[in-house]
């Protein structure tokens, strides 16, 4: 069973009563442990697809199955739980909680899950911070970190719950190319060791070529 399965998915937006078709019938299956990139020019629908898979938006028609669950039939609460337990997010602009330090930011989803003892949680948090190489910055606030460091924190936060799927919408767009490459390397490494399914978008050719599978989007359709 694939962790991600899209069937004839359409997404329409309305802008001043004018209908914009962002996705025009998407069929897509992604296997567990894949390291997949969604490529395409700006406006092609990358973000829209990721939002649907990330359960933060709903399709206009078609079927979206994430982690074995058909999202269209889930309530708002169930969708939230699905996001919490199945998906890890890495955002383009990092989206750390500014008032929390690195430890607290990484711990945040674990606290929401509330499955572990404080000790277990702390250990796991420190392990992941170590994994992204930020142990010495553990007590720092996001504002005291560089862009690359922030995105590493975000990666640690996305991975700390050991999700089935990690989604990343243009994770390197706000980073210089060297730092961006480091982030991609880190993601690849984790994909290799943890077998987490990675799905990320980019319009940067040098980055998309490093993926094992590339899904090319153009104007709301897959070009594969």
């Amino acid at each position: 069973m694939q962790p991600i399965h899209l069937e004839n998915v359409q997404k329409n937006y309305f802008l001043d009563k004018v209908q914009v078709s962002a996705l025009k019938g998407i069929n897509l299956k992604i296997d567990a442990g894949e390291f997949t990139v969604i490529a395409g020019p700006s406006g092609s629908g990358k973000t829209t697809i990721l939002n649907l898979i990330g359960c933060v938006d709903t399709a206009s028609s078609g079927k979206v199955v994430v982690g074995g669950k058909e999202t269209g039939s889930l309530t708002e609460k169930q969708l939230t739980d699905l996001r919490l337990h199945t998906i890890g997010f890495i955002f383009q602009s990092f989206n750390l909680i500014p008032v929390l330090n690195v430890i607290d930011n990484v711990e945040f989803p674990l606290l929401l899950q509330n499955k572990q003892s404080p000790k277990e949680r702390r250990d796991q948090v420190m392990r992941f911070i170590d994994r992204v190489g930020l142990t010495q910055y553990a007590q720092h606030r996001p504002s005291e970190l560089s862009g690359g460091q922030r995105q590493r924190v975000a990666i640690a936060r996305a991975l700390v719950t050991k999700p089935q799927i990690v989604l990343a919408d243009e994770p390197t767009a706000n980073l210089d190319s060297v730092t961006g490459q480091n982030i991609i390397d880190l993601m690849k490494e984790i994909n290799a060791t943890e077998k987490t399914t990675f799905l990320f978008s980019t319009h940067d050719h040098s980055i998309m070529n490093q993926a094992r599978r590339i899904i090319r989007l153009l104007d709301g359709r897959i070009q594969e």
Partner: peptide, 16 residues
């Protein structure tokens, strides 16, 4: 909005 949206995306319930 973004901070709250992020929390919600990561899995925080509205109650939170």
């Amino acid at each position: 909005k973004q901070e709250i949206g992020t929390m919600r995306a990561i899995g925080a319930h509205a109650q939170f």
